[in-house]
Design a protein around this nucleic acid. Sequence first.
DNA 1: GATTATCTGAAATGAGCATTCCACTTGTCA
DNA 2: TGACAAGTGGAATGCTCATTTCAGATAATC
Lengths: 176, 176
Amino acid sequence: MRNRRLALDAATALLAEPDATLTVEAIAKEAGLGAATVVRAFGGKDALLDAAVSGLLEPVVQRARDLLAQTTPHQALLTFLHELIAFQSAHHAISEQLGGLRLPATTALRADLVAAVDAMVDGARRDGAIRTDLDPAVLKILIAETTHAIARIRPPSQDLAEAYLTVLLDGLRPAT
Amino acid sequence: MRNRRLALDAATALLAEPDATLTVEAIAKEAGLGAATVVRAFGGKDALLDAAVSGLLEPVVQRARDLLAQTTPHQALLTFLHELIAFQSAHHAISEQLGGLRLPATTALRADLVAAVDAMVDGARRDGAIRTDLDPAVLKILIAETTHAIARIRPPSQDLAEAYLTVLLDGLRPAT
DNA sequence: GATTATCTGAAATGAGCATTCCACTTGTCA
DNA sequence: TGACAAGTGGAATGCTCATTTCAGATAATC
């Protein structure tokens, strides 16, 4: 259905904007459709945003898995975090605003993402590439929250995000 | 006015709860008052929350200034950040939920807080106590966002917050 | 103790938003 | 071309919430 695609593209475009209003009407206007059509195409606002967000997230998760398969856990972690913050910088609204919504596909993907990062952290820790004096569970939450914090920076700045990551990664190095 | 105090106390109590609903009705119920009375006492929900949040924030800002006056900038920064995250852990809702509200007193206090932290960072940087290879403006935003990230952690955990801060501070040390 | 001024909170109002309805348009097939 | 099916979006509905209203309660003044 053509409207599905139009609505999805519109929602995806709005998710990339720092402070877009994510009402059904705004999405419909962006898509050049009526609000009713947008809702019908997906069965509800939540389903639409779930589709849009998980569509954005899927390649990210795949990339994390690829990196894990291709290189050392530590190198995978470094590379992936840089890519992740670039992604977050380009899709601000994803972590914000979506508070009260039910997004099952997105939630599942996020769990996959967390699992992949967990594997990177565990591996890097085992290899002695990152500090071992902290509970590994702590490291994982730390990374998740940090990427969130980076995504919140206004105005969006890739430089700032990179600086942030530099500090995080230096803080994660094994004690010397 | 007694109602002012009751409403303020109720709002303050709710701000300490991790996932409280901050509707006027919820605050009124907590205070044992009617919703109309709560609104009247402050002239609006925004003004009430502004008073509650700035009341919480004021001693924090004062503490930052005291530390600056009493010790080295770097030591002030270390001490203050520990205290700040303890405060944030105890008042989760402050950084969340309040998105669309107009809180002038809170905004002003936050600016004061940022100014105090800026002074700490600048001083510590000048003293060579923290790394100098990053733009100082970056460090300030980094610290602000990190405390926000710490406040977001669910469930609230002082241990996790401390671990987070450990990583941040280690990441801020001068290159060796 | 009566009269007036003030305060209270349950219910009415209004605004923002997702969702549903339905008269109308567009496309399909004979 | 005409009859029918499917799709569309402006308007109506229903919900949540902040704010306002107003009849009754309470307090102050004499």
